[in-house]
């Protein structure tokens, strides 16, 4: 059985208590996208400042549960300084990690290697892997990322 510790890893709680890159950026020049989880009312706003194809600044707004807010916070630290292409690659890897539930809830189909932290190249974001054992919360964890994806498609000055 999946325990609470699988969901609420220390680093997740840390990002919830001390969210990084919290705040708004001026639009324009920044772009902004807003995401909602219609099930629970969680909201995330993602502001992106892009210069020469590099994300130079991220702002996170909104409110919601520890998983949605910490995931957005962790996302912001993961993509600052990355190119749009690199960002899309992280985005894809993260969403892949979050779609494990389609194959099995316990993640036991993964080879031991794949279950090892660090194998996905996602770094700290690996801490969110446990969310897939709580299917209802997957939408919380992906909210910020889907909103990032939207923000990337917004026309901006960058």
């Amino acid at each position: 059985m999946a325990g609470l510790e699988d969901l609420y890893r220390e680093i997740i709680l840390d990002h919830y208590r001390n969210p990084r890159n919290r705040g708004e950026l001026e639009v324009p020049p920044a772009t902004m996208a807003e995401g909602f989880n219609p099930l629970c009312g969680d909201e995330v706003r993602v502001y992106l400042q892009v210069a020469d194809g590099i994300i130079t600044e991220v702002g996170i707004g909104g409110q919601g549960c520890s998983i949605s807010q910490s995931s957005a916070s962790m996302m912001s630290t993961a993509v600052v300084g990355k190119s749009i292409d690199e960002t899309r690659s992280v985005l894809r890897k993260f969403k892949e990690m979050m779609s494990i539930h389609e194959h099995g809830l316990e993640g036991d189909h993964l080879s031991p290697d794949e279950n090892q932290p660090g194998r996905s190249g996602l770094g700290d974001l690996e801490a969110l892997r446990g969310v897939v054992k709580f299917p209802v919360r997957i939408k919380c964890a992906t909210l910020g990322w889907n909103t990032l994806e939207q923000a990337l498609t917004e026309p901006g000055d960058g």
């Binding site: 609470l4 969901l7 629970c40 969680d42 919601g64 549960c65 520890s66 998983i67 709580f134 919360r137």
Partner: peptide, 12 residues
């Protein structure tokens, strides 16, 4: 405590 987090612990 956000209601989602609260209900998650309550569920346990």
């Amino acid at each position: 405590i956000h209601p989602h987090d609260l209900s998650q612990v309550l569920d346990q």
